[in-house]
Amino acid sequence: MEDAGMKRSFVRILAIFALICAAAACGCTGTTETTDPAASAGDEIAWNLTVTDGTQEKVLSFAEIKALPAWEGYGYAVSTVGIKYGPYTVKGVPLTTLFDLVGGFEEGDQVGISAPDGYYWVFDDEQMSGKGFVTFDENLKEKPSPDLTPILAYEFNGTAIPDGDGGPLRIVVATDEPGTITEGSAWVKWVDRIEVKRS
């Protein structure tokens, strides 16, 4: 009887551990030191992004995304299990710039971000205006939020984002202020589709 209870407890602990590992695999976790050979050689990165509002659709190549007006600042994230990623200097395109290609973004709209691995994240209109995020200091103590800008990043620390870090295109909740940490679950890796959901 006691052995059966111990086995059930062990199975529960194992299941909880598996769930934590699965959550950690989503969003922001998993960094490597590998680099994209195409990026190193200066060759074109073969990756397309679809931006749509359900009625209009625009497909952009990696080169076309890099040709859009860039935003530069800082990004720093923490995973669901407390692992920090960064700090990075980041470069990319504000999501609002991409929305302008399909009719803009209005109050009440939402944004769905998709990746080929099936991960999906939704930003509401408050978050698109840079508010409604939980922010932390470097000791992971919650702090008042500075101005934040959700961007589609293509560079970390001056180089192309490697595949192991979620490149070539990754969402970053970025800021002008270094040292601000945001929750990594919104930092979608390998972004290939962005959809404005009209209210």
Rank of each mutant, 00 (worst) to 15 (best):
A174Q: 14
A22K: 15
A46K: 03
V122C: 11
G92V: 04
E57I: 00
E183L: 08
E126S: 13
K7Y: 02
P178K: 11
Y120H: 08
E106P: 13
A39W: 02
L49G: 02
K197D: 13
P146D: 08
V122Y: 07
A186G: 07
E64H: 04
T96I: 15
I65T: 01
G82V: 01
V59M: 09
K143E: 15
R8S: 11
W187V: 04
A25W: 10
V102R: 01
T97E: 09
D192M: 09
S9A: 14
T135W: 11
F133H: 12
W121H: 09
W187P: 03
V51R: 00
V90T: 06
E44C: 05
D147T: 07
V51S: 01
A4Y: 05
Y120P: 03
F99A: 06
F10P: 14
S114Y: 15
T31I: 14
A115Y: 01
G158W: 08
T159I: 10
Y74S: 09
I13R: 10
D147R: 08
D163G: 15
K84Q: 06
K91Y: 05
T97Y: 03
C21A: 10
E106C: 12
D117C: 00
T159G: 04
A70H: 10
A24F: 14
Y76D: 04
I161E: 00
G184H: 00
K58S: 09
T35I: 13
P178H: 12
L101P: 10
G42M: 04
